[in-house]
Amino acid sequence: MDNDVKQISIPSGLYGFEGLTKFALTRASQEPFLLLKSLEEESLSFILIDPLYFRPDYTPDLSDEDLKEIGEEKENNLYALAIVTVRPGEDPQMTANLQGPIIINGDTLTARQCITSNPKWQTRHDILAEIRSHQGAESC
């Protein structure tokens, strides 16, 4: 996706934030993150990351219902983005939710927070640790 601000519609909202359906998606000032800002609740925003950045093997399984809501799947029109949680402190944690990815249809600019049924994908993947272990695997 390019640098423009994209207006994204999430008809079902995000879990726990069901009433909010209009968002703006932009690149964050810090690479490789993106920002998903609510257009209805000014103080609400989420940090997102492309899961492939730290898990090149990421393939969420989507149900037909998921796809029905965001529009027809065509070649390369679906993007998965993971919501990032930062827990500050002496040993700051930066995790990504790969169990509940946001799937965006690039043609319709409609998205949905899906739930993957593969137990491999959890709500808290330590991004830095996974980058390190992946780099380790590559150098073997």
């Binding site: 726990g16 934030f17 989420f46 919501i83 990032v84 930062v86 827990r87 939710n97 709500t123």
Partner: peptide
């Protein structure tokens, strides 16, 4: 997932 979304919104 709800809990994680809430934590993400705070962060």
């Amino acid at each position: 997932i709800e809990k994680e979304n809430a934590a993400a919104a705070r962060s």
